[in-house]
Design a binder for these strands. Structure first.
Lengths: 238, 238
DNA sequence: CAGTTTCTGCGTACTACATACACAGTTCCT
DNA sequence: AGGAACTGTGTATGTAGTACGCAGAAACTG
């Protein structure tokens, strides 16, 4: 189920919810819950048991109401995931104070961003599950990164592209880490290595690379290689 | 959704299927179908209607059997998706003949890879849905990319990292294109721009970037910026 | 050739999930 | 006081994936 696209969503309602622009109800019984509470519980469940464990029924149980009561607060599950994905990006880093200019600043930003992804392994799937909806916290992160690049001579478009490029790299690395940490990944690796071995003549370059240790586990920083490459490339634009 | 992880899979069976290493049945009725046929039909459905449309029932209907008959050929849906994702990578490019060395060769490889992702928009979700399982065709692509980097002075590890980095970029760009092409994305963009406008003082750098046209649509090649940056960075390693 | 084994396709059934709908009770506004 | 707006709930629907067991078909065994 996975990587499902949403069918019918009301962008206006979804964004209003995400940005906290819904007007308070004036009559009726006091709401037992708040959107923030739901979001927090959703995050707690996802942190503990993964995104798949966050079902409407599970969440309802966690907050002590019936499943359908949740729909009084949230139009649908997609919106819940959006809220969760935005909420974990509270407290965007301020990097413009870091000495050394845009490069160490962007590096620090990247580390901070990557930390969030590592703290919440479900984030990647959550963001992959839906697109468009950027909340205020995610936007604040974007702002922080652009602030670092503002003093450089890059065009606005280049600045934007550079940040998106780095973000893509962070997500890629996160994905790789997830794969690696997954239960049973050793078994998969072993069996795949076996297959490569048995088909080595079909993949000469790969076989040589494997023999040379290209796939051997190291304790290098996973983010570093790509980040350095990208920042080198960005520097070359100036 | 989603982006679900699989619970229980038998790596040995899954990989054997993916690599075509299952032994033929010796008795019993002739099978009405083949795995290749299922894979092809799955791809056809996904191409036409998206990955979500590929359900076991839908596929069974398409090939003219009952749902449960499919399980005689495939352990589960994850394996089907694996097969589909590997099958679209038939005919890996040979780039070592391209003049100019590793750089134009890797660029050509990237374009070819990106083409596959664009021809099958569901590929990204399919690969995001499951990990570990690399099939022979995907491995052949990896081999082709490594072959381009083999003559350089890079270490095996660096070669590997560089290819993975580029692949991550290709996927990121694909993701962005998918978002952009999605129905209703204009509406989301418009509403988000509205929100930014109404909160411009909270995001000064972003507001300036937007004003300077950083988010304006261009007809630049989406892959180019990042690819150039990355290849520049890789060149700097030598 | 008869019996056994192995395999096929099928029907039924179970589970988990998101969510539509209508109802009863609660709070506020007029 | 009465109506409007809003809450939580119970019930129901549709769509998934897939477990299980059966009847018949093909091939191997003696």
């Amino acid at each position: 189920m996975p990587a499902n696209r949403d069918k019918k969503r009301d962008p206006h309602a979804s964004l209003a919810l995400l940005w906290g622009e819904r007007d308070q109800p004036r009559r009726g019984p006091k709401p037992k819950l708040t959107v923030a509470e739901l979001t927090g519980q959703g995050i707690a469940i996802a942190d503990a048991e993964g995104l798949d464990a966050v079902s409407m029924q599970r969440l309802a149980e966690a907050v002590g109401v019936t499943t359908m009561a949740l729909y009084r607060y949230i139009p649908g599950k997609s919106d819940l995931v959006d809220l969760m994905a935005d909420a974990v990006f509270v407290d965007p880093p301020t990097v413009t104070g870091i000495p050394g200019g845009w490069r160490p600043q962007l590096a620090a930003w990247s580390r901070a961003c990557w930390d969030r992804y590592r703290e919440h392994p479900w984030l990647l799937a959550a963001i992959g599950m839906r697109r468009q909806a950027m909340g205020p916290h995610q936007v604040a992160w974007l702002d922080a990164a652009l602030a670092a690049l503002a003093p450089t001579g890059l065009s606005a478009k280049q600045q934007h592209d550079a940040v998106i490029l780095i973000l893509g790299h962070i997500r890629s690395v996160t994905q790789q880490l997830l794969d690696h940490d997954e239960a049973g990944s050793q078994e998969w690796d072993r069996l795949t290595a076996d297959l490569l071995d048995r088909n080595s003549e079909r993949f000469p370059a790969l076989t040589r690379a494997v023999a040379a240790g290209a796939f051997a586990p190291t304790d290098d920083d996973p983010l570093d290689f790509g980040l350095t490459c990208i920042l080198d490339g960005v520097a070359a634009l100036m």
